[in-house]
Simulated assay, not measured.
Amino acid sequence: MYKVARGFLHEEDVVDAMSETVLTCYEKIRTLKQDAYFKTWMIRIMINHCKDILCAQRRSIAVERVCLS
C-alpha cells in the first residue's frame, strides 16, 4: 500500500491515504465478491483515495492563488 500511495502523493499525505483505505476496506468488506481479489480491490480503493487527496489539494491551491492575487 505504501508504494502505491507514494507513487501518487507526497510523503506527508501517504499515511492519510493508507488509513482511509484501511477504514474503507473494513466498512465495505461485504461488497467484495471473491476473496482471491482482495489485494486488487484494496489497491483500487487506495488509488481512488490518492486521487481524491490530489483533487482536494488542487482546489485548495487554486483558492489560495485567488486570495493572494
Results as ranks from 00 to 15, higher is better:
residue 19 S to I: 14
residue 69 S to M: 15
residue 48 N to Q: 04
residue 14 V to D: 00
residue 43 I to Y: 02
residue 67 C to Q: 11
residue 13 D to I: 04
residue 68 L to V: 12
residue 1 M to G: 09
residue 50 C to S: 02
residue 10 H to P: 11
residue 23 L to F: 15
residue 47 I to F: 04
residue 64 E to G: 13
residue 23 L to R: 15
residue 23 L to E: 14
residue 47 I to P: 00
residue 35 D to Y: 11
residue 56 A to F: 09
residue 66 V to W: 12
residue 11 E to A: 09
residue 60 S to Y: 08
residue 56 A to K: 13
residue 39 K to C: 08
residue 26 Y to N: 11
residue 34 Q to E: 05
residue 39 K to P: 03
residue 5 A to F: 01
residue 25 C to H: 05
residue 31 T to L: 10
residue 54 L to Q: 06
residue 2 Y to C: 00
residue 63 V to N: 09
residue 26 Y to F: 14
residue 53 I to L: 02
residue 6 R to Q: 07
residue 1 M to N: 03
residue 4 V to E: 02
residue 61 I to F: 10
residue 24 T to F: 11
residue 8 F to C: 01
residue 13 D to A: 05
residue 7 G to I: 03
residue 2 Y to R: 05
residue 66 V to G: 06
residue 35 D to A: 10
residue 20 E to K: 09
residue 61 I to D: 13
residue 7 G to E: 03
residue 43 I to L: 02
residue 47 I to G: 03
residue 37 Y to W: 02
residue 39 K to I: 12
residue 55 C to Q: 15
residue 48 N to A: 09
residue 10 H to V: 14
residue 37 Y to T: 06
residue 56 A to I: 01
residue 18 M to C: 12
residue 46 M to W: 00
residue 45 I to H: 00
residue 24 T to R: 15
residue 65 R to G: 13
residue 25 C to E: 11
residue 20 E to Q: 09
residue 35 D to R: 14
residue 1 M to K: 03
residue 1 M to H: 08
residue 63 V to H: 07
residue 61 I to V: 15
residue 36 A to C: 07
residue 22 V to S: 12
residue 54 L to M: 04
residue 55 C to L: 15
residue 24 T to Q: 13
residue 41 W to N: 03
residue 31 T to K: 14
residue 69 S to P: 07
